[in-house]
Nucleic acid binder design. Structure first.
Lengths: 347, 347
DNA sequence: GGACGCATTGACAACGTGGTACAATGTGAG
DNA sequence: CTCACATTGTACCACGTTGTCAATGCGTCC
């Protein structure tokens, strides 16, 4: 600790300037001549000076840290986003703090506010990234905006609320996935929904329905099953679908994410149903799991890493200026990834 | 920001005591009567006071934050550890900062030291958790100990170096996994190694070899394949093993982790080899993937969540006292999880 | 040439907490 | 009654940075 504690005043003395001048150089403030700037920067290099984060944030009310809020880290989605965010974060010299929002503690908006206030006082983040399902929660966004904390929400389809957004076009992606199955000749296509509190569930289902209708195929309610975005609910949905009599069974399944698609795939294996010959399966996300299944899952790739990375970039760009990020909305490209779990309809 | 900025002096006025008394109560110092203590605590509650993290850490050189260092977040292992650590961390009112160590930047010990100094000066963590492969790197541990930062290393089998350790008994676990296969009647058993810079690779292989030898079976070098702890290397190993002529093939495979076991399983599927009838496969870790494969993987469960949780607990307990955590070593229980990928040897 | 504007630089206070030093009180024991 | 000791308060400094404001230098315009 001791040896390495170079302070700003040391840099100032070393460069033969005042404390304030060093501060100006480090913060890229104007009113310092170029020659002096260089001299200071060299002194910083020579001494290996690093500003003290605590002193800085005490004085300036900035923490140089971005919080990632999630319910759980144990999903591929959150994980990939986190990875992208962290990468960008570190390059910019910020810290990334991971915070888990305990659902029990945030039942009401009052508890939510109290919880956030604790968080904020103890070290107000320069920005916050919200992943689903929190990115859909209007109360959370409201509280954050009241506290004047810039927020980027990942994944939501609504445009309304405050803060920035990073998404794909869920609707178009669902349409394209469905058309993929239609083009392969499938007509009886099942859909496994995700969690109902996430609007991508609804948007994807709407895309699915509309694509079917456009192709002159009506949606069979028996082929629309509930799901929770996890493996188990996919497995349950698969078991259910395969328990139907042969003529009632679907020839293809569109699951709202890869974990559920994996569940359907395992259900098929258990039932001795060949994939893709007897049943085509398409997922959504392009999780790691999609590639490690057999057969590998056809899916819609969401740029999860980029979600995190872009969100972080937006926050860091914004940080410093005290403007709130209002309604900025980035829509990133998705891509259909055709692997082995989908194939032509076998009359 | 404004409204919520309650300071210590506000609490003092509200409770009708002096600033110093509040400070004493909050820091659990002696010399305050119980009644007064309660009064202060109530004032804290009423005002929703939260100490300013930056002021606190500026003054006391503690940050109330723990860093988790990893190379990548994209592995089930790191992820689960992170989850456990975060949970415990938040309960204790600490922050968890995730830091990715760029391998390019840490090639030499000099760069490593410079990198850490930046990190430390900008906000010295109260503790650091190292996951593999960093927990095996003696240079990292050395640098941390020079900087007087408490470290908990997760997973290493060596006892030597400074800092605390949280592990399972890798050797015993590998022996047990191998015995499981032996008891099922298998004699030609392959082993897929992990990364060579992680000592669990070596310890697990030693356990495997010793169990075989004890059973009077010698290790066939052709059945020991390299691996990188990832799906692809497992797939390659599986392809290789199944390309052997029938009488040279193993009847069982022990992969040093689940991702590689999943690769072997997919290789079997591709080759039309039935699991477990024609080939038994056992993994290691009990990753999420183990349960989502078909057939579900038999594996050795490592208590990953607990690794993180226990490591965090040790750090937080230690935090405040300035003693370093020396040689504390917690060995947590593992468990053989028998699922569907292993079965009796079919003559 | 003097007044003025503007860019540059510096001196000093302030952020909210923890620590030190000591005074002022209350309380019980010898 | 006195002394020892625990409790509580007062007062101030320190942590390392940024913000405020004044001082300086320099060129420009009347």
């Amino acid at each position: 600790m001791n040896r390495s504690m170079t302070k700003m005043i040391d840099v100032a003395r070393h460069a033969g300037v005042s404390l304030k001048t060093v501060s100006r150089v480090l913060n890229n403030e104007p009113h310092v001549q170029l020659a002096l700037r260089e001299k200071v920067k060299e002194a910083v290099r020579e001494l290996g000076y690093v500003p003290s984060a605590s002193a800085r944030s005490l004085r300036s009310n900035r923490t140089y840290s971005i919080h990632l809020f999630s319910h759980s880290l144990r999903s591929n989605f959150v994980n990939s986003v986190q990875f992208g965010a962290l990468h960008t974060c570190q390059v910019a010299g910020y810290r990334m703090v991971v915070t888990m929002l305990d659902q029990a503690k945030t039942v009401g908006i009052k508890e939510l506010r109290a919880w956030f206030e604790t968080l904020v006082n103890s070290g107000k983040p320069d920005g916050v990234i919200l992943v689903p399902p929190m990115s859909n929660d209007p109360e959370i966004s409201k509280v954050m905006s009241e506290m004047n904390i810039p927020v980027i929400r990942i994944g939501p389809n609504d445009i309304e609320d405050g803060g920035g957004t990073v998404t794909i076009d869920d609707h178009a992606a669902a349409v394209e996935a469905t058309q993929h199955l239609l083009e392969l000749g499938h007509r009886r296509i099942a859909f496994v929904r995700g969690k109902e509190d996430q609007d991508s569930t609804h948007v994807r289902f709407r895309g699915f329905s509309e694509a079917l209708e456009e192709a002159g195929v009506s949606v069979d309610p028996d082929l629309v099953l509930p799901g929770l975005f996890d493996f188990e609910s996919g497995l349950a949905a698969g078991d259910r679908l395969l328990s139907y009599p042969k003529d009632k069974r679907p020839s293809a399944v569109f699951a709202a994410n890869d974990h559920m698609a994996a569940g359907v795939l395992v259900a098929a294996h258990k039932a001795g149903v060949q994939v893709p010959d007897d049943l085509s399966i398409i997922g959504f996300d392009d999780s790691e799991i999609a590639e490690t299944m057999w057969p590998a899952l056809t899916t819609v790739r969401q740029p999860l890493y980029e979600f995190g990375s872009v969100a972080m970039e937006m926050l860091i760009q914004n940080s410093g200026k005290n403007t709130r990020i209002e309604g900025e909305r980035k829509v990133l490209p998705y891509a259909l990834v055709w692997r082995q779990s989908t194939g032509p309809f076998q009359g």
